[in-house]
Each structure stands twice: as structure tokens, then as C-alpha cells.
Computed example of a mutant assay.
Amino acid sequence: MIEQIRPAEVAAWFARDAGAAPVLLDVREPWELQTASVVPQGFALVAIPMNEIPGRLAELDPGQRIACLCHHGARSQRVAAFLAQSGFDTVANIAGGIDAWSAQHDTSVPRY
């Protein structure tokens, strides 16, 4: 089962394994990234649209801690499950997506 984390829990989730590179994988479309995006703080931000993940899987390292993000959490949940099935050991879904990020964690991020 894919771990569900709230936006405010992302930093603590990444900190569970200081030896693993923390990556927030944003799987939204480019126009969505232009509308609203998170500011990387203590993690790398990687943007790969959901439909491009299979073809670009080599851009991700299975040894990283990867938290997946989309608009509301459904696409990122599917990507997290795909990554887990593809041998990625430490993946999570950011529950509520960027909408929850804006509402609960960083109100400077626009909602759409």
C-alpha cells in the first residue's frame, strides 16, 4: 500500500532517511506547473507528466525517497503505485495534491 502524507508532513517524511536523496515528483501537465508550483525546500523538484513516466523512468533513481504530487492526489497515487511496482522502495503520495499544499501548507501557492 502506498503511504499517504499530508503536505505539512513532507519534510518529516523525507527526513526519515537522511541518506536517500529526497525528490518531490510533480506529475501534472506543464500548464498546471505554470499555474501553480511548489518551491523546493530541502528536496529536488522533478516534473514529469504522468503519461510520460513509463518512458522517462530512467530519470528517477530507485534509491531516492520520492513523494508524488498532482492536482488533488489521484494521478500521483497511480504514479506512486507504478513506481512501487517498478522496484522503487520508498514512494509516497501527497494526499490532496497541490490543492491541499496551497490550502494547508503554503497559501502563496495559487489554487486552481
Rank of each mutant, 00 (worst) to 15 (best):
A44P: 00
L57A: 07
P30S: 06
A84N: 00
I98N: 01
A18I: 06
Q85I: 07
C70A: 07
R56H: 08
P54T: 00
F88G: 10
Y112R: 12
G96Y: 03
F82C: 09
E32T: 04
A15F: 11
G87C: 10
V79E: 09
R65E: 05
P40T: 09
A11N: 04
F14K: 09
S102M: 03
W31Q: 14
D17W: 10
E9K: 03
Q34C: 11
A8Y: 13
A8N: 15
W13N: 11
G63V: 03
I53T: 00
A58R: 15
A67H: 02
G73Y: 06
A20F: 06
A20I: 04
Y112N: 11
T35L: 15
I2H: 01
L83G: 04
T90V: 14
V38G: 03
D61R: 08
D89I: 10
I94M: 09
T90F: 10
L45D: 02
I5G: 02
D99R: 14
D17H: 14
V23G: 00
Q85T: 12
V109M: 11
I94N: 03
G19E: 15
P40S: 07
S108R: 15
S108L: 13
S37M: 14
A95H: 07
D106N: 00
Q85R: 14
I53M: 01
C70Q: 07
D99Y: 11
V38S: 02
A21T: 15
G96E: 03
F14M: 05
E9L: 06
A18S: 12
L33F: 11
P7T: 07
Q41R: 14
R111N: 06
A12S: 13
S37K: 15
E52M: 13
A11W: 01
S86C: 07
R56D: 04
H72V: 15
V38N: 03
A103R: 15
A11Q: 11
I53Y: 01
A81N: 11
I98Q: 02
W13Y: 01
I2Q: 03
I53D: 01
L45C: 08
P62D: 08
E32I: 01
W101C: 06
Q41I: 09
A74I: 15
Q34D: 15
L25M: 08
W31P: 09
L60R: 04
R111W: 09
H105G: 04
S86A: 13
F43K: 00
V10E: 07
A81S: 12
Q41V: 11
A74C: 10
G55S: 06
L45T: 05
H105Q: 11
G87F: 08
H71Q: 14
D106E: 04
R56L: 08
D106G: 00
A12C: 05
E32H: 06
N93Q: 05
A81D: 11
A21P: 04
L57K: 05
V79W: 07
R28C: 03
R56M: 08
